[in-house]
């Protein structure tokens, strides 16, 4: 099995220290986290972690189960890039003079849909959002025009066939045993593993 990019979506209680509990499950297996973002979810009080790693399906599945084993983790999903819609945001600081002088820069920024956030005499700050490869390309291109500063956010992702977490939460709040599926290949229900 070969490694590929997986995006994990982890719903958790909003508790101090939960990020540590999550992070060590990756570091103990010596898995590098390419990107990690934490944010509120559609439900107040429930946090959503979006984590990007390069791994085999087998390992990512085991990690997802060990994530769910944590007392304050409600659910962990993992998806390939085909199964999600994702974005990253970036900010670029470029000398204003260069932009004014060189038409190619303006064209470049238009091409990548970058918008001006701050315009000053000495520098201009642009922002753009998209897939990391596109942002990387723009960054490389801008380096030739005196890119002063660059920052890119972690990935945020929406799972295409997710119905959201409201229904799931009701199940969690009921004081009954879980009906969550933990399937395996034998029963031919792989598609339901960690999908909503």
């Amino acid at each position: 099995m070969s490694k590929q990019e997986y995006t994990l979506t982890v719903y958790t209680e909003n508790r101090i220290g939960i990020i540590g509990r999550i992070a060590i499950l990756f570091s103990r297996r010596k898995i590098n986290i390419d990107s990690l973002s934490t944010s509120p979810s559609e439900i107040e009080g429930i946090h959503r972690f979006t984590i990007v790693i390069q791994e085999t399906e087998e390992v990512v599945r085991k990690v997802a189960r060990q994530l769910e084993k944590q007392v304050e983790v409600l659910k962990a999903y993992y998806n390939t890039n085909e199964e999600i819609i994702w974005q990253e945001q970036a900010l670029f600081k470029v000398p204003t003079a260069t932009i004014a002088e060189k038409a190619s820069v303006e064209r470049l920024l238009r091409q990548y849909g970058a918008r001006v956030v701050v315009l000053r005499n000495d520098y201009t700050v642009f922002e753009t959002a998209g897939h990391s490869e596109d942002i990387d390309k723009l960054t490389t291109a801008l380096t030739d025009y005196g890119l002063i500063e660059f920052v890119r956010s972690a990935r945020i992702a929406i799972i295409k066939n997710s119905e959201g977490f409201h229904k799931k939460l009701k199940e969690f709040e009921a004081e009954e045993p879980s009906e969550e599926l933990v399937e395996n290949e034998f029963l031919g229900k792989r598609d339901k593993v960690f999908t909503m």
Binding site: V73, P177, S178
Partner: peptide, 16 residues
């Protein structure tokens, strides 16, 4: 304590 919403120690047994 009898219940924590994010923690389900007793999984449902599936007859299949």
């Amino acid at each position: 304590c009898k219940h924590i919403r994010s923690y389900r120690p007793k999984p449902l047994v599936r007859p299949s």
